[in-house]
């Protein structure tokens, strides 16, 4: 078929408007979700269940991953630091990498794969089997009963999981650096303590996690809520949750890092 410039322009226009359309839908959805958050705080039991499914059940993958990432950081960091004869700074390097970047980012990526995908699939299947419609017909708002608790659970769990990831990572680095390589134990901890700043490093790291939690949580419930109610539609939505969440986390991380750490020192 010959390329018709008008048809090309039409399909380009359609691609742009359909994406804008979806963005508008997502924005309206986000506003609707935020407007019912208050209701959910009154019934905190609903959030507890989701915290268990999204947060507690992600503990093992997050802690084990943190341990391994910390160990790798220690091996790599030691390689470089010994060239300059400053291997005692290993604790600092590892702690800053974890608290500022890897903790929030890798945890968010793991969370998107482990918990958000499950949330999307669950909500998508609830839609496909008319459970959301049934709830709506029983005069119970699915946004308040189903969507908001899962969204809030992501916001609450991500910072906590990221903190545990960083802590596990530091323990992993300590095992490699101090126990196996033989860096001085006191130097490892005291340099870390002296160089990690509560406001600049820890608060900013937690802030990142919260932002990632909002993004990942919103994407997962949005994709589930608007999933096409078929087997294929739910699987597409689940995939899209993981892909979009991962990209959103990495992009947001760039933006936040520039805002938080540019021009420091």
């Amino acid at each position: 078929m010959k390329a018709d410039p008008i048809a090309l322009l039409t399909s380009l226009g359609h691609a742009v408007t359909s994406r804008l359309d979806r963005l508008g839908l997502a924005t309206r959805f986000a506003i609707a979700v935020f407007s019912v958050l208050g209701v959910v705080f009154v019934r905190f039991g609903l959030i507890i269940r989701e915290l268990y499914f999204s947060g507690v059940r992600s503990l093992s993958i997050v802690i084990v991953s943190g341990l391994f990432v910390g160990m790798v950081l220690a091996v790599q960091g030691y390689e470089v630091l010994q060239r300059y004869g400053s291997t005692e700074a290993l604790g600092v390097i590892v702690a800053l990498s974890l608290v500022r970047e890897l903790g929030p980012v890798v945890t968010a990526l793991l969370f998107a794969g482990r918990a958000s995908s499950a949330v999307t699939a669950e909500i998508g299947l609830m839609r496909a089997t008319d459970q959301l419609a049934a709830m709506d017909m029983m005069a119970v708002d699915p946004l308040a009963r189903v969507i908001a608790p899962r969204f809030l659970a992501a916001i609450f769990s991500l910072p906590l999981l990221a903190a545990l990831f960083s802590a596990a990572g530091i323990v992993g680095a300590w095992i490699i650096g101090v126990k196996l390589i033989g860096i001085d134990d006191g130097a490892f901890w005291s340099q870390m303590q002296a160089s990690v700043d509560v406001r600049i490093d820890i608060v900013n790291g937690v802030l990142k996690s919260v932002v990632f939690g909002v993004a990942v949580g919103l994407i997962s419930v949005f994709e589930g809520y608007f999933a096409v109610p078929t087997a294929e539609g739910v699987s597409t939505a689940t995939t899209r949750t993981v892909v979009t969440s991962s990209l959103a986390v990495l992009l947001l991380d760039l933006v936040l890092t520039v805002m938080m750490f540019r021009g420091l020192n």
């Binding site: 089997t129 008319d130 459970q131 049934a134 709830m135 017909m137």
Partner: peptide, 13 residues
């Protein structure tokens, strides 16, 4: 004041 029975029941699984 309206009850609805969905085609496949739509029970909460």
């Amino acid at each position: 004041r309206i009850g609805m029975l969905f085609q496949f029941g739509a029970l909460f699984t």
